[in-house]
Amino acid sequence: MEFALILELSVNGIFIGLMYALVAAGLVLIYKTSGIANLAQGALAMMGAYVVWAISAQLGAPMWLAIPLGLIVMFGAGLLTERLALRRMIGQPVIMVIMLTIGIEIMLRGVLPGIFGAAVKKLDVGIPNDPLFIGDILINRATMIGGLISLALVALSIAFFNSRLGLMMRAVSDDQMASWSVGIRVDRAVAIAWGLSATMATTAGILWGSTQGVDWSLSLLLIKALAIAILGGLDSIPGVLLAGVLIGLAESLATGLLDPLVGGGTRDVVASVIILLTLLLRPHGLFGREHIERV
């Protein structure tokens, strides 16, 4: 096996992993504030990409305007989802809330292609497609830029959780009743988390949409994001970063090295195997916080 091939697969895998991590960070953001795994995160990414495409292609806005507009629209969509659907579920069993998010996922996956047509839409955000050569290795320019943007956003969200507002969100995730009793507006904190999470999903949707086109399959990002969030620990943003890189690497190496031997398709197996192994061996994930029990 040539060294250069492995290096090339690794570098590209890391960038792809970072792009997955951006979707996973949105999952973690909601889980950290309200304790719900939002299974509609992939659909939100898809919706964000559709919205940006619609603003630029249907309404004719230039891309530099369409992207910020799309982010704002999706922030509002996140707030609305929380306000109209999730807030009614306060006090209900967690399983019902999770079923609700699955319902939102299925609905969006059906409705959006229904409105805009099922054909793959081309979303050109102006990232050049020609590859970049560094020495012998070939790097996909689109995934490199996408990976770096994702890295910056995830780093930003780590900084956010150390700010005062982020601290209050962590307090809400620890104990909603106690947060309420000391004057934290719990409903507002949860709504902001949903808005920010939808914005992050949209960024991921735009980046992925620009590399593979916009259609319903963007919602499948959920599977990778879940694998990353579970491996990293559902409530740890640094965990998401490391797990994203690991899963990107594993996927890329599996595709490059195993596919020729078994006839293809290993890429999608990797995420599932990692979910399974993490849950069996380390249910809290790499960095997830453990339940504190005093004895």
Binding site: L167, R170, A171, D174, D175, M177, A178, S179, S181, R289, I292
Partner: peptide, 11 residues
């Protein structure tokens, strides 16, 4: 101040 203290355990 709630019964059972209710501190934010992970903070």
């Amino acid at each position: 101040v709630l019964e059972g203290r209710h501190v934010f355990g992970h903070l």
